[in-house]
């Protein structure tokens, strides 16, 4: 059985040129964890996630490889974090999406897709190999929903 049989064929998508904070609002409102990003022609560009947006609130010194192991000594308040987020008001989705999230394809096996979701902890975009267009999304809900 392949991903094509269980994928969500009409996922919510955002455009690479959309304002980042607007996407954050939508993500929160609709309780999404991550969203696929597409260009004007529906081609997959990357994923934008709440995890990535949380990272924007943190100092680079902690998020970079071999950075600070913890920030228990930093006493920034909610207002400080709000100020940090406001610094991204002009930013676009393309500035902060993760283009490294590798898509699966309609013909990918379900077990392989499940393994990838387990390893990355992310929903996976499903992309047509020949056109590069997003054709759906697969998440734990699609897999487990067929089983239970």
């Amino acid at each position: 059985m392949t991903v094509a049989t269980i994928l969500n064929p009409a996922p919510y998508t955002v455009n690479a040129d959309d304002h980042l904070l607007e996407v954050v609002r939508i993500t929160l409102e609709k309780r999404f964890r991550s969203l696929p990003v597409v260009d004007g022609e529906g081609r997959y560009r990357g994923m934008v996630s709440l995890h990535g947006i949380l990272g924007l609130l943190l100092p680079t010194a902690a998020t970079v490889d071999h950075g600070l192991a913890d920030l228990a000594f930093v006493a920034d308040t909610l207002d400080d974090l709000k100020e940090v987020l406001q610094g991204f008001v002009e930013h676009r989705v393309s500035d902060h999406m993760d283009p490294g999230v590798k898509p699966v394809h309609p013909e990918t096996s379900i077990v392989e897709a499940t393994l990838l979701m387990f390893r990355t902890g992310e929903n996976l975009p499903v992309v047509d190999r020949s056109t590069g267009r997003l054709v759906g999304l697969i998440s734990p809900w699609e897999v487990l929903g067929k089983l239970v």
């Binding site: 100092p59 902690a62 600070l68 930093v74």
Partner: peptide, 14 residues
């Protein structure tokens, strides 16, 4: 330097 530089970056960031 691996241990001092991250704190330095945090401080300069602030």
């Amino acid at each position: 330097v691996l241990l001092v530089v991250p704190v330095t970056l945090l401080i300069t960031d602030e």
